[in-house]
Design a protein around this nucleic acid. Structure first.
Lengths: 216, 216
DNA sequence: AGTAAATGTATACCAGGTGCAGAAATACTC
DNA sequence: GAGTATTTCTGCACCTGGTATACATTTACT
């Protein structure tokens, strides 16, 4: 057939539609009945696709859920790479996280749209999905370590140490917010506290734990 | 039968023996052929036990390997709880880690006994086992956060933030050591570097990442 | 010795995931 | 516009981790 610019291509478009159809069917069923209560066969049937085809698009059942978060794996690393000149990496990361809070970015745990809320709860209640999230965390650590090493002239070990600390802290903040929202607190009510906590956390990251001096 | 002090009990002893027999058979087979190349049925057969019994002792295949590391999950938390009076938690943890290096404690990644080395390599090469290790990490974070909150009069969020940073750093140090030893470096040769790296890491933890100021 | 409770076994079963051979759809060529 | 090569999809059989059930065996207690 005559095609002016063959960018999309029928095959490619169909692939994307199938991908979306499977993912949507999966999310719908999982949210309705729970991740472990729905089999991949049921998802395949709902998406009008064979089981074999489903696994051609998503290598594991968990990927049906977590593939949407794959982009975030390298997000912090990108923030460090794309930061303004003469800006400390940690400052760039802090500002990006605060902006995420303002935008109610789901990755900060501060989005209380019912769909997001239910999805978050489902993930947190499903061990195999939590494990996958931990995997993303590890990926984010690696990516950030590389970015720090390349753009901030940081020795390898120092870059790795800084990366694991930064990622761990962001994760902890997000989990705390998500837990509070899952408990029923509205995002707007939580926002000031989330900002204060984030600032506290990043200041701790900057100044270290040395101030925590005990008596006993 | 006449038993003076029924502490062990025949049943208990037999249980322990079976537990050990299964675990040993599993490790032996896994080290020889690889984790994914050996089925639980083969392990059960080698241990002269039914598959059902195996799963009565170990809830998942991965537990056959990682159950030995379960104790370490709360190790850092214990160190903080049992620290000497008027000692900062971080100082206690640092000294404990350095002692672990001196003792070639496998958890520091600085043990190069062939068995340990092969086991480490196998775990790192098996995604499902790595995922379980990440799970232990999360458990260690929770336990340490509790210990910090209870014994160091630290607010909840601060305790959690400090815990995730400390655990993440220890983990990174151990992984770095393990990687170098897996690459062929002897533990004794690595020891001075490991000590220096650990001190650098804990100092970073104490003083924060604020010194890492970029120019660009 | 005899009985209750715990433990082990055999069998069948479910679900996630893969290999394979062939059918169907798409892209390319004349 | 027909014909062919290449992907892609499908159905099927199969393997493995893990569980349910029902029954046999062993240990502990009196």
């Amino acid at each position: 057939m005559c095609v002016v610019d063959g960018r999309p291509g029928l095959r490619e478009r169909k692939k994307r539609r199938t991908h979306a159809a499977i993912s949507d069917a999966a999310i719908t069923l999982f949210l309705e009945h729970g991740f472990n209560q729905v089999s991949v066969a049921q998802v395949a049937e709902a998406a009008e696709v064979s089981k074999r085809t489903l696994f051609a698009y998503f290598p594991t059942k968990e990927d049906l859920v977590v593939h949407r978060l794959a982009d975030h794996e390298t997000e912090t690393a990108r923030v460090v790479r794309d930061r303004l000149p003469r800006t400390a990496p940690l400052v760039a990361v802090r500002e990006h996280f605060l902006k995420g809070l303002d935008d109610r970015d789901p990755i900060t745990g501060l989005n209380d749209h019912p769909q997001v809320l239910r999805l978050t709860r489902m993930i947190l209640d499903t061990p195999s999905l939590v494990a996958r999230m931990e995997g993303f965390k590890a990926g984010a650590e690696r990516a950030l370590a590389e970015a720090l090493q390349e753009t901030a002239a940081t020795p390898e070990l120092t870059a790795r140490l800084a990366a694991v600390q930064i990622v761990a802290v962001q994760w902890a903040l997000a989990q705390d917010n998500a837990a509070r929202l899952a408990y029923g607190e509205p995002a707007d009510a939580r926002h000031p506290g989330a900002v204060a906590d984030a600032n506290h956390a990043f200041t701790l990251l900057e100044n270290g734990l040395g101030d925590l001096i005990p008596q006993s």
